[in-house]
Simulated scan of single mutants.
Amino acid sequence: MLNYIQALRREFEILAMGEGETVNEYFARTLAIANRMTAHGERMEQLVIVEKILRSMTPKFNYVVCSIEESNDVTLLSIDELQSSLIVHEQRMKNQRDHIEEQALKAASSGRGRGRSSQRGRGRGRSSQSKEFVECFKCHKLGHFKNECPEWEENAHYAELKEEEMLLMAHSDSSDNGKEEAWCRGDFWISSY
């Protein structure tokens, strides 16, 4: 029996929060050991548990622990108050991390293909890219692709051959004097000057 209590004391002393562990998980582990110690006759005061938890949090909680120690009288702080305070800080850190990751993801995805030359070609990144960041090559406004441009629709001409069910499409622009024209026939392009 004495050896078991000594083993529990040692387990309590070496107890530390794991890197991937949440505040609730760590409190559950700590209180389970403290309850086993109490059940075997060891007197566990709330202050001892509070101080142990504050001492053994992961480094990412260092500023939170300092803040709690500065703003509260630790001798009067209950386990529930400490847990509530740490959960609020943990949730705030998680929200900030999620926001930073979301911003980084937006920056990474909007950074790809923003330039004119990298958007040329059929279908690159169109399905995964939000249209709010897309610049139209016709009118240079954001929010739509060239083939969806209202100005493009005015000048588009379609020619259809019924024999082979082939669709030809051309676009003429009065400001494109002397530039190359391209026709699409089925699976290949026909260019003329």
Rank of each mutant, 00 (worst) to 15 (best):
E11L: 15
I79Q: 00
S191V: 10
H157C: 10
D173G: 08
C149F: 03
M37Y: 08
E13C: 04
I68K: 07
K179A: 14
C66W: 14
F145M: 11
L142D: 01
Q91A: 04
A182T: 12
K141E: 15
L2T: 03
I87R: 06
Y26A: 13
S127R: 03
P150H: 09
K52V: 00
E81R: 13
S127N: 02
H157E: 12
E153C: 04
N95G: 11
D98V: 03
Y4P: 01
R29V: 02
K138Y: 01
S56D: 04
F137E: 05
G111E: 01
R126V: 03
S78G: 04
S172C: 13
W183E: 01
S67H: 07
T58M: 02
K146Y: 09
E25Y: 01
V64E: 08
E160K: 09
K162R: 12
Q129M: 07
I53L: 06
F188L: 06
I5R: 15
R116W: 13
F188M: 12
T38K: 08
M57W: 09
C184N: 13
N24S: 14
T38R: 08
E81M: 02
R112M: 04
E21T: 03
G186L: 05
K106T: 10
N72S: 05
H157W: 09
E69F: 11
A107N: 15
I49V: 08
G20D: 13
S130M: 01
K52W: 01
R92P: 14
